[in-house]
Simulated scan of single mutants.
Amino acid sequence: MMVLILAALLLFLHSCHRQEQSVPKPQAIRVSTVTVKGEEISVPYETKAYLEAEKDVVLRPEVNGRVLELYVDEGSYVKRGQRLLKIDPSQYENTVRQLEAQLQQARVQYQNLEDIVRRRELLFQKDLIAKEDLQNVKTQLRSQEEVIRSIKAQLDNARLELSKTVLRAPFDGYIAQRMVNVGDYLTVQSPTFRLVTLDPIKAVFQVPQELLPYVKEGMEISLRVEGVGERKGKVFFVSPVADNNRMITVKALLANDNRQLKPGMYGVVSIPTQKLTLFRLPENAVVLRGTQKVVWRISQNTAQPVNVEVVLHQNGTVYVRGDLKDGDRIAVENAFLLREGAKVEER
């Protein structure tokens, strides 16, 4: 009986030994690493901005009348002083002709009175007429001078009104909209064309009051517009007042020589603010662990998690802050496979 028990015990021990030999040891995870070093980075504040033309006006005529001709259409580029439309000048031409005739008659009358004055002066010198007769005709001459000046003023105004029958561009720009047709009767309140400039163009955005120390006139900003790319600009206006939400309006001018930026478009403006010491890593070095973002610090071939905050993200690179120090080796390739205490093999 004892022999059977001893044989069973030996068989059991041999079986356990074989099971222990069959359990594989955990393999080390192969990773690549980078060595980090803190960098002082100017962290930008980003916010949405909308674009508007530096000059954007709706043109209205300065005189009333019916449209006789249109010289430009929507999309046209016009130079300052270029003709845009012409209003029927007939009534203004008639007014000019009438005043020119009146002026001519007044000048003839003035010359007649001058002759009379000269003759009466001679008669007065010979005591042939009373002094009052001479004074009366001189008074008439001065009155006629006033008549001539009045008619000249009216004629100048009439000629000016006549010149205004041609509407001209007040500055170089593009016709963004035409709101008139040939034959329309216009008053001085009638809209005709919307004229805008495209280069330079304004970016308008808002910043919270706590960022006001970082926003100054003349500072450079960066604007990123989807489909266009990134453009640089300079701040030229910082509002002296805040709105009800304690936000400050800021405006910047951007070069737009290729006219790709259009009024009404939106972009993201980036403003340099405070400087922080951050660690630069490839973006795949940062992994999610529950709700936390972590990187895996490798020490003595063992992985340990370090919670980090991603402060900046640029083209596949992230800048993070956390409990890191210069010289730490951080796992990159296969970082998503790691667990706390996992053994690793560096490539």
Results as ranks from 00 to 15, higher is better:
residue 125 Q to Y: 11
residue 176 A to S: 09
residue 176 A to R: 01
residue 99 L to H: 01
residue 165 T to M: 02
residue 117 V to S: 02
residue 121 E to W: 12
residue 102 Q to D: 10
residue 141 L to T: 11
residue 144 Q to M: 09
residue 139 T to K: 02
residue 165 T to Q: 02
residue 154 Q to F: 03
residue 114 E to C: 14
residue 123 L to R: 00
residue 116 I to G: 08
residue 104 Q to L: 02
residue 115 D to N: 13
residue 146 E to C: 02
residue 121 E to Y: 06
residue 155 L to Y: 12
residue 171 F to V: 10
residue 118 R to V: 08
residue 140 Q to A: 04
residue 113 L to M: 08
residue 158 A to P: 07
residue 133 D to N: 03
residue 137 V to T: 15
residue 153 A to Y: 14
residue 123 L to Y: 03
residue 107 R to N: 13
residue 176 A to L: 04
residue 149 R to P: 00
residue 173 G to Y: 07
residue 171 F to H: 09
residue 108 V to H: 09
residue 146 E to I: 04
residue 108 V to P: 05
residue 178 R to A: 11
residue 113 L to N: 01
residue 172 D to G: 12
residue 141 L to C: 08
residue 167 L to M: 02
residue 143 S to L: 02
residue 133 D to F: 05
residue 104 Q to H: 04
residue 146 E to M: 02
residue 109 Q to E: 15
residue 154 Q to N: 13
residue 167 L to N: 00
residue 164 K to I: 13
residue 132 E to K: 02
residue 165 T to L: 04
residue 177 Q to D: 09
residue 126 K to S: 14
residue 128 L to C: 01
residue 113 L to H: 00
residue 147 V to D: 04
residue 128 L to D: 13
residue 179 M to P: 03
residue 154 Q to P: 03
residue 104 Q to E: 08
residue 101 A to V: 11
residue 147 V to I: 14
